[in-house]
Design a protein around this nucleic acid. Structure first.
Length: 545
RNA sequence: GCGCCCGUAGCUCAGCGGAUCAGAGUAUUGGCCUCCGAAGCCAAGGGUCGUGGGUUCGAAUCCCGCCGGGCGCGCCA
């Protein structure tokens, strides 16, 4: 039996609903948090939904359901101060202050595991993100992916699962060949645009750096290996500075060398869903929701990128990942339906919605009122390193997670620089530093706080702050369900606001010992929640600023 | 043209399994440091939620059309 009053109440309502309306099992009992505090701590609109179906008076239904529910919830009074039927048929519930305050002890005693769930049987899940090809420095879009992917991974870990962070890269294709040609041309003194410069060469200055650093023989193969290593290393340095660590780097080339591509082609042929047309081999991927059939083998005998893509995801499935989340830019929109269709065609039991995709819109970079074009080949794009140099890791992370992944993102460079002093990240970090500063001036024993008597807390502000703290675990769970790390960022802003407001209204270190101890316990819980939330989005929680 | 996504305050954006949903930050204006950190707090003004229909007792939220923007739409990767 859970001790969460909301869940207890929901269970009671479900029972009442079964008795009152057995013909409507589709109705779900959910509680909302009203914006206006006078509407209680949470509200249930189930009676309104039911009234519609039964064509009965919603207020009467609310009464009937609620009295049934309360009959199934004998110790209701231990948790709730009361309820009321309001408006057209809402039921508003008011928690007892002591219930709200209980979150304080929960947060303190949980410590760094606050907001984290423990599962008896953790799922093995994988988050694949960044996955930049080693043909140039990471750009701001990769930065957005790194921030989103790493935060999702952390949130899924908090949900209690075992997470693998994976980086997939193409180390053998046409792009890499162009990279080698570009470095080779640079070594011979050619510049982009010169006669003899490779057709799809990379124009960035980093090509010249690689050419300068290269000391080996004048062989394309050797140059290619060197350039790949060089750029991989450079990307790793940026990622390390950004605070992102990967568990697995997966090489596309291994799919070929280990026969996984051939295996997939055979399996697709065996599926009976292929056909020959115009000298090429096609898959009827439209049968699995793709918007057009896909070429497997081109008429020149080589495979399209579709094949290693499917092979890679089959490999993920075989490695036992129950959930896979691919974080990619919307420019990869097409791969979603394609990869899923390919996996379905293999008919090996992969669920239809596998893998999950979190698509983020491209980051547009503005300098003043002018857009800086992001173009890898042109070599004139803003890099992740640029952002890190301008505003620092914490601000970049927080900023990049301050909106939904699929929302357009305009990164104004001038604004980002100017925001160094005003970026919302400081607002949240400052709240944390403030609590730390209070504790630095307190000579008591932190251990006493775990046993603090909270009954001295009597103001609405204190109840509200405690309640907000208590919402944290549920928020983390929802962020995991929705794969929405930005909700953590928004929560932290709200929590910090609540704390700053409280801090300005009340003195913490008052003379009254009982009140002081209780307030310090509240502060300790707030600090823990701020620190835990910031950790999830990869932002530091400084003790001083 | 087709598919997916987006259009909410001057600006940047939350909310979008309908109701108690008109919100935050920022900018502007006016207050608050003899007192735990003013990177803070309090307050004011500011939006017919792109637009036109529909469903509903009730729509920013669901459905359809239109307008505007993004990204895809290759026997590229």
């Amino acid at each position: 039996m859970t001790s969460d009053p909301k869940e207890r109440l929901a269970a009671a309502y479900r029972k009442a609903l079964e008795a009152e309306a057995p013909d409507h099992p589709e109705l779900e009992v959910v509680f909302e948090k009203p914006r206006q505090p006078e509407h209680g701590d949470f509200a249930c609109s189930i009676a309104l939904q039911l009234a519609k179906r039964l064509k009965r008076n919603p207020r009467q239904l609310a009464e009937a359901l609620t009295s049934r529910a309360l009959a199934a919830f004998p110790d209701f009074d231990n948790w709730f101060a009361g309820y009321e039927i309001a408006g057209p048929g809402f039921v508003n519930f008011r928690l007892k202050p002591a219930v709200k305050l209980a979150a304080i002890h929960s947060a303190i005693s949980a410590g760094t595991s606050w907001g984290r769930a423990a599962k008896d049987r953790p799922l093995s899940v994988q988050v694949e993100f960044v996955s930049a090809n080693p043909t140039g420095p990471l750009h701001v879009g990769h930065g957005r992916q790194a921030a989103i992917g790493d935060a999702i991974a952390a949130i899924l870990e908090a949900r209690g699962d075992k997470v693998t962070r994976e980086f997939y890269y193409n180390d053998a294709g046409v792009q890499i060949h162009n990279l080698a040609l570009s470095v080779h041309a640079r070594r011979r003194g050619l510049k982009p645009g010169d006669a003899g410069w490779p057709h799809d060469g990379y124009a960035g200055e980093y090509i010249a750096d690689i050419a300068d650093a290269y000391r080996g023989p004048d062989e394309l193969d050797s140059i290619r290996r060197f350039a790949v290593d060089y750029l991989r290393n450079e990307q790793d340095i940026d990622l390390r500075e950004f605070g992102v660590k990967f568990d697995v780097y997966y090489l596309e080339s291994s799919l070929y060398t280990e026969g996984k591509v051939d295996e997939v082609v055979k399996a697709l042929l065996a599926s009976g869903k292929t056909y020959e047309k115009d000298g090429a081999l096609w898959l009827r991927s439209t049968e699995y929701g793709d918007d057009k059939d896909r070429v497997i083998r081109k008429s020149d005998g080589t495979y399209t990128y579709f094949v290693p893509d499917v092979a890679y995801h089959l490999n993920k499935w075989r490695r036992g990942f129950a959930q896979v989340i691919n974080v990619q830019g919307t420019d990869h929109m097409g791969t979603k339906a394609r990869v899923r269709a390919g996996l379905q065609a293999l008919n090996v039991g992969v669920p239809p919605g596998y893998p999950d995709y979190v698509m983020h819109s491209m980051v547009r970079v503005m300098r003043g009122s002018e857009e800086v074009k992001i173009s890898k080949r042109a070599g004139s794009y803003v890099t992740l390193r640029d952002l890190l140099d301008w505003v620092g890791r914490d601000a970049v992370r927080f900023f990049l997670l301050s909106r939904r992944a699929d929302a357009d993102f305009v990164f104004d460079i001038d604004l980002a620089r100017a925001q160094t002093e005003e970026n919302p990240v400081y607002y949240v970090q400052y709240a944390h530093a403030r609590v730390c500063s209070v504790f630095a001036q307190w000579k008591g024993n932190p251990g006493d706080l775990t046993r603090a008597d909270l009954s001295a807390l009597k103001s609405e502000r204190e109840f509200a702050l405690a309640q907000r703290i208590g919402e944290f675990p549920e928020l983390v769970a929802e962020a995991a369900r929705e794969l929405a790390p930005h909700s953590i960022t928004f929560y932290l802003r709200g929590l910090a606001a609540e704390f700053h407001s409280y801090y300005n209204a009340e003195r913490i270190l008052v003379d009254d010992e009982a009140l002081r101890t209780a307030r310090l316990a509240l502060c300790a819980a707030a600090r823990q929640t701020l620190a835990s939330g910031l950790a999830l989005i990869g932002v530091s929680a400084p003790e001083k600023m």
